[in-house]
């Protein structure tokens, strides 16, 4: 590198800084889509356990609930594997 550098080595203002200080920067959590629904995960109270059965009927029947997914909704070969996730 013989020529002197004009841009590299300079403290250019961080991209997005203006958006960040004005609250305009959009993070994933700030996005809204029409008809968007909200999901939560039921977590096991046990550090190590196997699920014997899941009954989602009552949850499904709760007004406002659109869908419940369980491992049955995923083909076994695409389930989260211990070597991934």
């Amino acid at each position: 590198m013989t020529r002197s550098l004009a841009v590299v080595g300079k403290s250019l203002t961080r991209l997005g800084a203006l958006e960040k200080v004005t609250g305009r920067s959009q993070y994933t959590g700030d996005l809204t889509l029409p008809g968007m629904l909200h999901a939560k995960i039921l977590r096991s109270p046990h550090p190590h356990a196997r699920i014997v059965s899941i009954d989602t009927c009552a949850a499904q029947a709760l007004p406002g609930v659109a869908a419940v997914v369980t491992p049955r909704d995923v083909a076994p070969d695409t389930r989260l594997q211990p070597d991934r996730a």
Binding site: A39, L42, H48, I54, T56, V68
Partner: peptide, 25 residues
Amino acid sequence: MREEVAEAALDLIQVEYEILPAFFD
């Protein structure tokens, strides 16, 4: 508040667990 319904639904899911030995060490 947007997640209220989903949170309430979690309480209604019935799960039967087989508790297995666990290791923390």
